[in-house]
C-alpha cells in the first residue's frame, strides 16, 4: 500500500526500532503504508528517511530517542513524545521485549491491552482465573488538558500477583497517551507505594498490519531477564489469537457496530477520543474494505 493521507495519523510520533538495533547498516521498514529506512551515519548520527518510489532515500524525517527506542513521524507532530515520570527514576529496571508482528489494526491491539475481562479466558492462571471473572466498576475519561485517555480505579483478580504467590485483587491504571501507545501502571508487589509501568508501543505498518513492542519500567531486582521476556512473550502470543480473528480487523468507531458493557468503558472512551481526533487509519470507517 502507499502512504496514508490521514493527517491525524501522520502527525503522531511512532517507535520504529529498539535503539540497540540501530547500527551502521541501514534497515528498511514501513510506517503507515510508507517505506522508510533508518540507520546510524558515519558521525554516529541516527537518521530516518522515507524511501521514494525508485527505492532511494528521500526526505529526512524527524527523530527522537526515548524509552530505549527510535521514534519518528511522517508529518509535523504538534507535541513532543509523552512524558513518563517513572522513566527518570534511577532504580528502575528497563525491560525491552521483542517486536511482535500481528495481522490486525494497531487500534485493536490497544483495545485488547485496555481490556481486563479477557484475562481469565485468554491468559488463564496467569492474569486471571475462573470463576473470578467480574470486572468491578472503574472510571475512564478523556483528559482534556493533556489530550490522553485514562482508566482509573481498575481492579481485577489475578491468580498470582507475584510468582508462586497467592492470588488477589490487583490495582491498575491505564493510560493512552497517543492512538498507538498504551500503558498500564500496576501497584508494585515488592514495593506497594510505587507503580510498575508496562508500555506497549505500536508501529502501524498498514491499516491491518502492525508490530508491537512491550517496554517495562519495573521495581524488580529478583526476576531474571529471561523470565520477564518469556512472560511477556506468552501473554502476547495468547493475545495474538484474538486480535487476528476479530471481524472486522479494523476498529469500528460507529457505536452500534459492537456491543460494549460497563467493563468496556475504556474502549468506549478510546473510540470516542479517536473519533473526535478524526483518526481514520486502522479504523473500519476510514480504512479500506477488509473482511
Amino acid at each position: 500500500m502507499t502512504k496514508t493521507t490521514d493527517i491525524v495519523a501522520l502527525d503522531e510520533w511512532y517507535a520504529i526500532a529498539v535503539m540497540a538495533d540501530v547500527g551502521g547498516n541501514p534497515i528498511r521498514t514501513r510506517l503507515l503504508g510508507q517505506d522508510i529506512i533508518y540507520g546510524r551515519g558515519p558521525n554516529d548520527r541516527v537518521s530516518v528517511h522515507e524511501v521514494d518510489a525508485s527505492g532511494r532515500p528521500g526526505a529526512a524525517l524527524p527523530t527522537r530517542e526515548r524509552y530505549n527506542c527510535l521514534w519518528t513521524s511522517l508529518g509535523a507532530p504538534r507535541h513532543e513524545i509523552f512524558r513518563l515520570a517513572e522513566a527518570e527514576e534511577k532504580d528502575r529496571r528497563v525491560v525491552v521485549c521483542g517486536w511482535i508482528k500481528m495481522r490486525t489494526s494497531g487500534l485493536r491491539l490497544v483495545e485488547n491491552f485496555l481490556d481486563m475481562a479477557h484475562f481469565p479466558y485468554i491468559h488463564p492462571n496467569i492474569l486471571g482465573a475462573e470463576p473470578h471473572t467480574e470486572v468491578p466498576q472503574y472510571a475512564s475519561e478523556i483528559r482534556r488538558d493533556v489530550d490522553e485517555v485514562w482508566a482509573t480505579n481498575c481492579q481485577f483478580y489475578q491468580p498470582q500477583i507475584v510468582a508462586n504467590g497467592p492470588g488477589g485483587m490487583v490495582q491498575l491504571t491505564y493510560r493512552v497517551p497517543s492512538p498507538f501507545v498504551v500503558m498500564l501502571y500496576r501497584v508494585c508487589p515488592s514495593s506497594p507505594d510505587r507503580l510498575d509501568v508496562i508500555m506497549m508501543f505500536i508501529q502501524p505498518i498498514e491499516e491491518d498490519l502492525c508490530r508491537a513492542l512491550p517496554v517495562m519500567y519495573l521495581i524488580d531486582d529478583r526476576s531474571s531477564q529471561i523470565d520477564l521476556l518469556n512472560f511477556e512473550q506468552v501473554i502476547f502470543l495468547q493475545d495474538r489469537i484474538i486480535v487476528e480473528n476479530q471481524r472486522p480487523l479494523l476498529l469500528p468507531l460507529e457505536p452500534r457496530s459492537e456491543t460494549p458493557t460497563r467493563a468496556d468503558l475504556s474502549s468506549v472512551v478510546f473510540r470516542r477520543w479517536l473519533k473526535e481526533k478524526g483518526l481514520r487509519f486502522g479504523t473500519a470507517e476510514g480504512g479500506r474494505d477488509l473482511v
Binding site: 480473528n245 476479530q246 459492537e258 456491543t259 460494549p260
Partner: peptide, 13 residues
C-alpha cells in the same frame, strides 16, 4: 454468523 456481537471475535474459536 462467525462473529461475537461484543467485540467481533470469531465464535468458531
Amino acid at each position: 454468523e462467525d462473529r461475537c456481537p461484543h467485540r467481533g471475535m470469531r465464535l468458531s474459536f
